[in-house]
């Protein structure tokens, strides 16, 4: 009789379970979608590296059975940039939260998109800082309350999809953890896309965001997504701000071709230096999947 194994065992560190996430949290679902997407793409797992920053989502790097780096707050993208440029045959994935990637790490986010760095960035957006106890995030829609906006938020949040689009990302999509099949498909596309690809993953944080804002538990927030999400592929990202307890536009918004950082670097140097220059980082396609 064959022993029962978890279908994600080849990608997850089972010896690190149980994970730290709360009941009703969607980060585990997002991580499963990544595992599923990696399986679908057939990218050799030995050539995949996951880089996270700090926060609840930042713990993903510690649970995937891949080369994985849990770095400093906000710096996952520049760390990933160094990793990718040093070893261009790697498929480098950044998996982190909204606070990490677009508050403290916001500058790196826009510059990596501008350079079209060949990395896939998966951002779990739960509208709050979970790890530190539910503070205002750069995504918190007014007038939601948080522990640092006890009378309600009043700052305009970032529209992450628009930010990525306007900074030059090659691929931009937004899904929720309810839309697991579409999310997984989108992650598959993002992983296979050359250049800076970005998927925003809307995710419940019942413990700190949902409960405080009378959205309810994880299930109720998923029901909210079911009732309020509108799939609109190709939507103008300027029009898809996420407002408090309002409709959420989801879908694939951007899928375009631009030279990556290394493509641009190599073509410039070839033009300037001619045969004195050997293109940097030619990827060899001989790695076996295991």
């Amino acid at each position: 009789m064959s022993q029962l194994t978890h279908p994600m065992e080849s990608i997850l560190r089972m010896n690190r379970m149980p994970h730290i996430w709360c009941p009703g949290c969607g980060i585990g679902t997002a991580m499963t979608a990544l595992a599923e997407a990696l399986n679908k793409t057939q990218i050799p797992l030995d050539k995949v590296a996951v880089v996270s920053g700090i926060g609840c989502t930042g713990r993903v790097a510690g649970y995937v059975k891949l080369d994985s780096f849990h770095t400093t707050h906000g710096r996952a993208i520049p760390f990933a940039t160094g990793l990718k440029l040093a070893n261009p045959e790697l498929k480098v994935v950044v998996f982190s939260g909204d606070g990490d990637l677009v508050a403290i790490g916001g500058n790196h986010f826009i510059h990596a998109a501008r350079r079209n760095m060949d990395i896939a960035v998966f951002c779990v957006n739960n509208f709050t800082y979970g790890m530190t106890g539910g503070q205002l995030a750069p995504t918190t829609p007014p007038p939601a309350t948080s522990t640092t906006t006890p009378y309600g938020a009043y700052e305009q949040p970032f529209n992450l999809a628009h930010l990525a689009d306007s900074a030059g990302a090659s691929y931009v999509a937004r899904w929720t953890v309810l839309h697991i099949r579409r999310l997984t498909k989108s992650m598959t596309e993002a992983l296979q896309k050359k250049g800076f690809s970005f998927v925003e993953i809307i995710c419940p944080c019942p413990t700190l965001y949902g409960r405080r804002n009378r959205i309810g538990d994880g299930l109720q927030e998923m029901q909210f997504y079911r009732d309020n999400c509108i799939i609109q592929h190709g939507a103008d990202t300027r029009t898809i701000d996420i407002k408090f307890r309002d409709k959420i536009v989801i879908g694939k918004f951007v899928d375009r071709e631009r030279p990556t950082f290394l493509d641009a670097l190599n073509s410039r140097l070839l033009e300037a230096l001619g045969n004195r220059y050997e293109p940097y980082g030619k990827v060899t396609e001989n790695a076996d999947r295991n």
């Binding site: 710096r75 760390f79 160094g82 440029l85 040093a86 500058n107 950082f261 670097l265």
Partner: peptide, 24 residues
């Protein structure tokens, strides 16, 4: 046969150096 990248700030530069070292 190497690569130079001008980063957006020094925080990014140091982070990129660490990533590159892990890249070999």
């Amino acid at each position: 046969a190497g690569v130079f990248v001008q980063m957006e700030d020094e925080l990014a530069s140091m982070a990129a150096v660490l990533g590159a070292a892990w890249g070999g």
